[in-house]
Simulated scan of single mutants.
Amino acid sequence: MRKWGSQGKENSEVQALKTDLKRAFGSWGFIAAVIGFAVAAFFGVAGQILPILQGQMEDGLAAGYSIQLSIDSLKTDVVLLVLPILAALPFTTAFVDDHKSRYLREYLPRAGKRPYLVSRVAATALSGGLALFLGVFLACFAFALLFTPMELMPQEAEKLAGEMAMTAEMGGQADTAAQLTFTDLMGRAFLFFLSGALWSLVGGMFAALTQSRYMAYASPFIFYYVLVILSQRYFRNAYVLSPQEWLNPSGLWNAGIWGAALLVGELAILVGLSYGFLMQRRMRDA
């Protein structure tokens, strides 16, 4: 009986998570966040793109230009501005909606508190993180579709054909550089996933605290820019305080991108636990 009971709880948690993920990924907020991020990335590098689209680049583009353009777009002010807002769109209001609609009174007696809490925290984090992660790759795909055909122009192809005598070592160095650029892009995409999860959880936490849908969307943006202002004006040496530094870590980090990823991951876990605790407290009034 004890074994069956534990399996039943696990199954209920998995089923609750599947339901919440389906609800989150199918929402208008998730779709809007993915597309909105890609649009922001395009606007961020519009100054670099327009001359190319207007035909002013007669000599063609350097190899790997689309990947480097993708990386540059992730550093722009436009992307950094909308990031906390987009991360909050998919699922931050779920608990407030359930609480105000009295849905919890019907759900909790059948499924229990633990499956509900685990699924809400996990779905909030995953939906916010994946919205930005997929937004990064949507922008990369669009850049590659537009600019990769321009990277090897006929003149360049003839030049490359005339340079077949180049050493294998130089070719290996070029391949290594391309691999490093792609690795950098993947690392930054992972940072955006973690940041999206963090700010989505922040929105859910403040929504549970205030029981306000407005705070679910506004609190990530407010808290994000409070940290930016503090780090830029009052604590300039405390680089770990800046959420923009988390997304584009400088050489000050011991482990580079992965050092920033560790910090953001730890913060997401702490905020997720706080979110679960606040939901549990609010459930007493349900």
Rank of each mutant, 00 (worst) to 15 (best):
K3S: 09
G8W: 00
K9S: 12
E10R: 12
E10K: 09
N11R: 14
N11W: 11
L17W: 03
T19D: 11
D20H: 14
D20G: 00
A24F: 06
F30T: 05
A32W: 02
A33P: 02
G36R: 04
G44Y: 05
V45H: 01
A46M: 12
A46G: 05
Q48G: 15
P51Q: 02
D59V: 07
D59Y: 08
D59T: 11
L61S: 02
Y65P: 01
S66I: 10
I71P: 00
I71A: 13
S73F: 09
V78H: 00
L80H: 07
L81K: 03
L81F: 14
L81W: 11
V82G: 06
I85E: 01
L86E: 03
F91K: 06
T92S: 15
T93W: 01
R102D: 10
R102Q: 11
Y103E: 10
Y103P: 01
L108S: 05
L108A: 10
P109R: 04
P109G: 12
K113I: 14
V118Y: 09
R120C: 06
L126W: 01
G129Y: 09
L130E: 04
L130K: 03
L130I: 14
L132R: 03
F133E: 02
F133C: 05
F137E: 04
F141V: 09
T148P: 00
T148V: 10
E151N: 05
M153E: 08
P154H: 07
Q155L: 10
A157N: 01
A168G: 05
E169Q: 14
M170A: 14
A177H: 10
T181P: 00
F182P: 00
L194P: 00
S195Q: 10
S195P: 00
L198P: 02
S200E: 04
G203N: 05
F206W: 11
F206N: 03
Q211H: 07
Q211N: 15
S212C: 07
Y217L: 15
Y217P: 02
P220K: 08
F221R: 07
Y225H: 13
V228M: 09
R236K: 15
R236F: 00
S242F: 08
E245R: 10
N248M: 10
S250C: 08
L252V: 04
W253F: 15
V264Q: 10
G265E: 06
I269G: 01
L270G: 06
L270K: 04
V271G: 01
G272I: 11
G272P: 12
S274P: 01
Y275Q: 04
L278T: 13
M279C: 15
R281W: 11
R281H: 14
R282C: 08
R284W: 02
